[in-house]
Simulated scan of single mutants.
Amino acid sequence: MRNIIFFLMLCRIHATCAATHFLKGFFTAGTGLGAFPDFVAVVLVDEDAVAYFDSSIKCLQTRQQWAENIEETFTDVYNELMNSFMQALKSFWKEHLEPHNQGIHTFQLMFACQLDDEGKTGGYRLMFGVDGEDFFTLDTRTFTWIAANQMAEDIVKQDQNSAENAAIYVKILLENECTEALNVFIHYGRESLERKVPPEVSLLRRDPSSPVTCLATGFFPEGIAVSWQKDGKDLHEDVELLETVPNENGTFQTRNRLTVSPADLKEHNYTCTVGHNSLERKIIKTMTEEEIKTNLDPGNFSLSAIIGVVVAIFLLAIISIAGVMLWRRRRVREL
């Protein structure tokens, strides 16, 4: 899904405020998937997977040690919520889509919110997809639906009232349910979520004619700045900054490639500068024959896949579970 992929990339671009935290939910439902669960939900906080649910286990599981301390009332409420959500998706599929579609199909939903230490909220996102293609996106400025194709547009037109009501419910869920859940996670996981781990920086090159890669890895949090300089001046040409991606141990890595000729390398001074909020001073690597590690292909470095395919749901499914979610939220507040 193009919009969702863009959103995931955007979330990794240099976070400037370490006290701002993000919650992202990735849900997927499908038919004809064989042994693979027909419903999977993953919740991430600042790129750490903290909760998991699928239709086989039917129970919310924590994925971080600190999350195991979250109050039982909270997990019970969201465990029931996940089961209700799963049943709503199945019912919607069976009633509205199954008679017209056979074979393997997937539905994705991604939602997100953010919260900082001053209590400021925002960063609301909601996207739907069907069979890997964009379907609906919620414009969170106006809380109206943006249809990605004719089928989605027809669904909105068929029942405008339902579409408007669904947008209202989603607004409440993002501004209340999502931020309240994120606040709980921050309370229990602040020490881990706000840890600072400095990067390790290396210069790599496959052979003398290949681009030189400045690799920064093992850092946390995610926001980082990696740049090239030529004789002390920032370089923007012949530079390729790659996406920041997670490592398997919960840290991150990124790469910045510079294409430079052997002649220029001899005549000029090239440096790679890395800035990160875990560092008192920026790391500067000077491009010399001694500093560059050769016979290494940066593309072979182990990268973790971004957790979670996202889950999509249609308007009627949202409305069918909205009442349950709001009722559960009131119940949590009363407890």
Rank of each mutant, 00 (worst) to 15 (best):
G119N: 10
G119K: 04
K120D: 14
T121C: 06
T121I: 04
G122C: 03
R125K: 08
R125W: 00
M127W: 14
F128T: 15
F128S: 06
D131W: 10
G132I: 06
E133P: 00
F136Y: 05
T137C: 03
T137V: 01
L138Y: 09
L138T: 10
T142R: 10
F143A: 06
T144R: 08
W145K: 09
W145Q: 08
W145F: 15
I146D: 11
A147W: 02
A147M: 02
E153G: 13
D154E: 12
D154H: 00
I155S: 08
V156N: 11
V156F: 03
K157C: 00
K157G: 00
Q158P: 05
D159W: 07
Q160M: 07
Q160L: 09
S162G: 01
S162C: 02
E164N: 05
A166D: 01
A166F: 02
I168C: 07
Y169E: 00
V170G: 01
K171N: 11
K171L: 10
L173S: 11
E175P: 10
T179D: 12
A181Q: 13
L182I: 04
N183W: 00
I186E: 01
I186V: 11
I186L: 03
R190C: 10
E194L: 08
R195W: 11
K196S: 14
P198Y: 03
P198E: 03
E200L: 12
S202R: 15
S202P: 15
L204N: 12
R205N: 14
R206N: 15
R206G: 13
D207P: 04
P208F: 00
P211G: 12
V212G: 13
C214T: 08
C214M: 10
L215R: 10
A216K: 06
A216S: 13
T217W: 14
T217D: 07
F219T: 08
F220G: 03
E222M: 13
I224C: 04
S227I: 15
K233V: 12
L235P: 11
L235Q: 13
H236Y: 10
